[in-house]
Write a protein that binds this DNA or RNA. Structure first.
Lengths: 255, 255
DNA sequence: GTCTATAACCGGATAGAC
DNA sequence: GTCTATCCGGTTATAGAC
């Protein structure tokens, strides 16, 4: 998680460094807090930059001094959301050993922690969907967050007592991350009470996914698994270095 | 395809009806043509409503008289794109009987016909991704187009010589439509030369999908298939009537 | 050199006259 | 149906204050 994402600068780096107190980097913090609160209260589009600035007690020009666009304020949300998720699911991952339960815990906590921002996330997704946007989950700017999330999925598998076909093992975390993206996509569109449909989807698909993982070691499934895994490798090879199983990460002229 | 989508009204309904000539519904048509041309030339965001109006020889207010927003101009693209796709793949569907080949033909023609609008589609997707947008593929406004596309998938399966597990048969077209959406999502993010990665993805995943469909009749896979199919039904039940396997279709306060 | 503020600009959208 | 004038909000230019 970078400073850019959390809205923090060097303040409070600890006794080791010079620890530049940076008086008015509190301003930056104030702006982020205000923005996130207003986003939660009025939604993304319902919150104007003028409102954020005024509520935060700064001028609009000043807000733009710290954040180069309204979208960049969202990065703060990304970082925070990810951090909250990690905290929320670490307990389960330390105690539970069953793969399905571990997966369920991660998915449930993801949705639960994001729930207060449900409406916000919908509007958010609008800008995040643009491949050219730095907010796209596939963009290079999102790489750190994406890597964290993928590593979490690796942890889910490794800490479990499931036997995973070695062929599949390397790629599985990426595939599970993609699965999580699908769940989130569904959640964003889900307007059922309490997002009941999303939780039902999680219950049922987690079951299916774990079943597929188990089946993957069967001889019958071997060729299919091998082909699938090989595909992800080829796609990566066709893309630039460091790219993820889904394209993106390269800049594109926005117009 | 509705009038709204094509930008046509009753003009030219044929010798049967009164055929109200609707003098200046040509205006509407002019606006659409101009808009699509400018979108292709300068991209979606690079084209202003002022430019469209001025190029079309009307005032900006007049443009808004015909199309309630810039986004609504996109519906015209949707309809056109869909129509082109149907024309492009009908030949293959009439001659080819092998399921994998039929699926490949539909997917290839989809991407090929959309290719000129690749950049446009990227920006387009940004607005289409908003669950609240009428342009969301899951919105009720998109229902006609979605139904057409789903029926195309039904045709792909029915016209083939593949044996599909009866349990799966009803749901399969919806699932294949979802699969197509996934391909398009990938394509939008694909900046490889000629979108080579997308075509590779199609080649490989079509293979896997067809394999899965074939495997679905195995006794071993029965319970898994049954669970998956049952899930889609439950999700639909939790949603409003007429909803598709993925949520959406209900209006939501946009702010 | 780091911050803050005011006054525009631009483009999507609307009101209301003709 | 068609126009002009205007609003509104993201963004930028730029002038100053610490």
């Amino acid at each position: 998680m970078t400073d850019e994402q959390t809205g923090q600068t060097g303040a409070g780096v600890g006794p080791g460094g010079p620890a530049k107190p940076k008086k008015a980097d509190l301003t930056r913090r104030t702006i982020v807090e205000t923005a996130l609160r207003l986003f939660r209260e009025h939604g993304y589009e319902g919150t104007t930059m003028r409102a954020i600035a005024s509520e935060a007690g700064v001028s609009i020009g000043n807000a733009y001094y710290y954040f180069e666009s309204k979208e960049h304020l969202i990065q703060a949300y990304y970082g925070r959301s990810n951090a909250e998720h990690l905290v929320a699911c670490v307990d389960a991952l330390e105690t539970e050993r069953d793969l399905k339960q571990r997966l369920l815990a991660v998915l449930y906590t993801k949705i639960e922690t994001a729930q207060p921002y449900h409406r916000f996330a919908g509007q958010l997704f609008k800008t995040a969907a643009d491949p050219a946007s730095p907010l796209s989950p596939f963009s290079s700017e999102s790489m750190p967050t994406r890597r964290e999330a993928t590593e979490l999925m690796a942890l889910v598998v490794e800490g479990s007592d499931a036997r995973v076909s070695p062929e599949l093992a390397d790629e599985l975390p990426n595939l599970l991350w993609l699965y999580l993206m699908g769940i989130i996509l569904f959640w964003i569109h889900d307007d059922s009470a309490g997002c009941a449909r999303t939780f039902k989807l999680i219950d049922r698909t987690a079951d299916i996914v774990v079943n597929l993982i188990n089946l993957s070691s069967l001889t019958l499934m071997r060729p299919l698994v091998r082909r699938a895994v090989q595909l992800t490798g080829e796609l990566r090879a066709l893309a630039g270095p460091g790219a993820e199983p889904v394209p993106g990460g390269q800049e594109r002229s926005s117009e």
